[in-house]
Write a protein that binds this DNA or RNA. Structure first.
Lengths: 155, 155
DNA sequence: TATTGTTATACTCTATAACTATA
DNA sequence: TATAGTTATAGAGTATAACAATA
């Protein structure tokens, strides 16, 4: 009989391969090329957070979603503002804070980026059934949740 | 009816959450603490490659498996050698090259690390059925493969 | 005094370039 | 001249510390 399924031997290497395929293929970098702006990964990540939120956000809020610290977002926003992709506006509720919002060009750039990424994913998974897509999404979500719970339990 | 399953909305965020859960929890760093050596991620990665291969390897071979360039591995091996976790021995087949092999202490450290990681994975996934574990492994492997093929097709 | 954000600095990981030694 | 490895340097990404302004 075949030896039992092992998380260490059978699951961890798959996770490594996946992250390798994403990095090695420089998929993010190629999708950024399609935007016409020389952005880097954290910059496009800021744009993506704003786009998905669909509203202006504080620096601290963006940092929280990206799981990074504030100063890092400040620097990215500075660069994006210089390029005219975001602007800072006053926060009516708190004069200490300002809100970061996408400009029209920023929105267009982000939409081009997302469209490119989606078309590649569709290309890679064209042979997948709807059931398998759904199953992967569900299982991945569950793993992320269970790992987060495990981490909490360890603290 | 519910809107259709979207790779962009339903799969990509799950991948992000997973990588977030792994990084945010600093799982690798905690597992390293269990080894009793102040190693960093690339260093433990070199040890893991050697352990999984089960034989001495060339620097270039290690770099290939880690998907990084040679000089990076050289630096890691230098550090590991100073700590007595690996040693360099002559390659009988090619005098230009040397082989990197684990010392007894290096093996012990790697085994402690792997055991810790596995116990956490087991803890996180204790409620998972064997079928779901297997399904996730299979689907992840397939996704990694299909993405790699997509990248090849784009070159 | 607590919180939001910024500036300045430093650290980790990985890459490129130039060089040495052997094939 | 090609290949394996090393040394030195540089860059991207993110963190910590110190500070300013407002609550």
């Amino acid at each position: 009989m075949p030896s039992e399924f092992s998380l260490l031997r059978d699951l961890l290497p798959r996770l490594n391969e996946l992250s390798g395929a994403l990095n090695r293929g420089r998929l993010v970098e190629r999708a950024i090329d399609s935007t016409g702006h020389p952005l880097d990964r954290p910059a496009i990540s800021v744009l993506g957070v704003l786009q998905l939120a669909g509203r202006p956000m504080r620096v601290g809020e963006i940092a929280h979603r990206m799981k990074v610290v504030g100063p890092h977002v400040t620097r990215q926003v500075n660069g994006l503002e210089e390029r005219g992709l975001v602007r800072r506006v006053a926060d009516p509720d708190d004069q200490r804070a300002r809100l970061v919002e996408l400009t029209a060009e920023g929105k267009a750039v982000t939409e081009r980026y997302f469209a490119t990424v989606e078309s590649w994913l569709e290309g890679a998974m064209s042979a997948w059934t709807a059931e398998d897509r759904q199953a992967l999404g569900t299982l991945l979500g569950r793993l992320a949740e269970d790992l987060a719970a495990q981490v909490s339990a360890m603290d």
